[in-house]
């Protein structure tokens, strides 16, 4: 835990700026690369910088989970699939900006602006960094205690969601169990047979 703050304020700022910059840059990179492999790698970088930011706000467990689960498992899965699917180069800006591009930029920009405006209006100045938190704020034990007492329902539901997703993933990814001769299936049924 970063407890020595006195001369560390500057350090905090430096770390914050670096991590934030990395976060934003990698985010833009994810959206911009034409090779999905590079995008995935950029995302890993994004996740890592986010973990640093989490650490700066004393959310240690979450930061660890971010690296372990998100970067470690989810992104690996992504990379596997990207490798399986093969290289597909797509020119991201091919065909010139269409009306959809403009509309999309507009929509995203407006969302962004709104969020900022909302926060500014609501907060009215009270969003300064305030006070210190307890020693075990953000610690695994603390998280675990909350999970199993105050937010037990969320815990259980999340686990069910994960179970369902696992089953779904297995079903979606499994091979066809029977090889039916192509000629015997009528056209509209052929796709159904293939998917299962």
């Amino acid at each position: 835990m970063i407890a020595a703050y006195s001369a560390g304020a500057a350090l905090v700022w430096v770390v914050w700026v670096a991590a934030g910059f990395a976060c934003l840059a990698s985010g833009v990179a994810v959206v911009s690369f034409s090779n999905p492999f590079y995008s995935a790698l950029a995302l890993i970088g994004n996740l890592g910088s986010l973990a640093v930011l989490y650490l700066l706000v004393s959310a240690e467990f979450v930061a660890a989970a971010q690296v372990l689960v998100y970067a470690g498992a989810v992104m690996v899965m992504f990379l596997f699939v990207i490798a399986y699917v093969g290289p597909r180069m797509e020119a991201p800006w091919a065909g010139g900006p269409s009306w959809q591009t403009f509309a999309a930029v507009l929509a995203a920009g407006s969302l962004l602006t709104e969020i900022v405006v909302v926060i500014a209006l609501e907060a009215g100045g009270s969003l300064g960094q305030d006070g210190s938190v307890g020693r075990d704020f953000g610690s695994p034990g603390w998280i675990g205690r909350i999970f199993l007492t105050d937010h037990l329902l969320a815990f259980e539901i999340t686990s069910i969601v994960l179970l369902v997703a696992a089953v779904g993933g297995v079903i979606l990814g499994s091979h066809t169990r029977r090889q039916v001769p192509e000629a015997a299936i009528p056209d509209d049924e052929r796709e159904v047979a293939q998917v299962s």
């Binding site: 959809q100 509309a103 999309a104 929509a107 995203a108 407006s110 969302l111 709104e114 909302v118």
Partner: peptide, 14 residues
Amino acid sequence: TYVFFLASGAAVIA
């Protein structure tokens, strides 16, 4: 298109 409408709708509602 659908996502676009989703995003625009969210923006308008906000």
